[in-house]
Amino acid sequence: MKIIKGGQIMKKVFALVLALTLMLSLAACSNSAAPADSSAGKSGTDTATEAAKKISILTPYLSSVTTNQMVETMKASMETKGMVVTVVDTKGDFGQLASRIEDVVSSKADAIVLVSADPNQVKTQLQAAFDASIPVFGCDSGFIEGMMVNATSDNYAMGEMMAKYLFEDLMGGKGTVIALTHRPHPGVVKRSEAFDKLLKEYPNIKLITEQHIEVPGPIENSRKVMENLILSNASKDSITAVWSAWDEPAIGATQALQDAGRSEVIVTGVDGNSQAVEMINQDTNLKATAAQNFEGMVEIVVNEMTKMFAGEEITKGEQYAPATIIKK
């Protein structure tokens, strides 16, 4: 009987080998752009004689709508220029991000783009990229010595712009405010610092509380946070406004306020994501957002990278894409 089983087991070994090989091969093929060093990797553009440039876009926050939009636009834009692009998302995990940067370095990518992640948190791994002469770009990230360019909004200026608009134009210099933040994010922390500083200049505006919103799932999380804050601030006019450091918590907070019938509470966001803009136009609690110029950032990265590959000189450092206030 055991002998028969041995035969069955052999079949299973074969099935396992086949299944694994098939799965891995499928995965490899699913990346429509084959590795650049194969003949299939040659671009069909006017640079056909050169191997296509392999670009790795890495981010821990792909589930965020804005990061996602940015990554998709960047990928599309790079692909039209004949580059082979891979996107890696580590779902908020910086240990994984560090490992994936190492992998990209050992696979000898032609350039790395770090999206919405503070380079200080993966400094050692980026140093390995610098040592291997792999150019590193940032998009809505930060800038450290050794990188080429980080395209971003001036987050401090945006936080200040929105807080000032809220305090002066929407609140008339008095009332109470709730802040929804996520300080581990490099951009959000700058906006929050601008908010903190400006708040000190308005003695008649009282901060009820600052709440940390979890990522992923910021809309759901901020909605819950707001529902609870509504319960603890039940009387009308006990909350004048909610200052949200980016749009997704503002959306969640607005939904909670609408459900509770608290139409008097003003909400503002930052980012200008499409759902937030729609809510502003629908006369909800959400009154304004600062439109980050994500397309502008992507354009900066792609243009600078193209210049670099063409052998032109580029100016290293932070480059800002200017923001504007969106209101009804």
Partner: peptide
């Protein structure tokens, strides 16, 4: 990652 397979895959 080295094979440049997308994260979801």
């Amino acid at each position: 990652t080295i094979l440049q397979v997308p994260t979801f895959m």
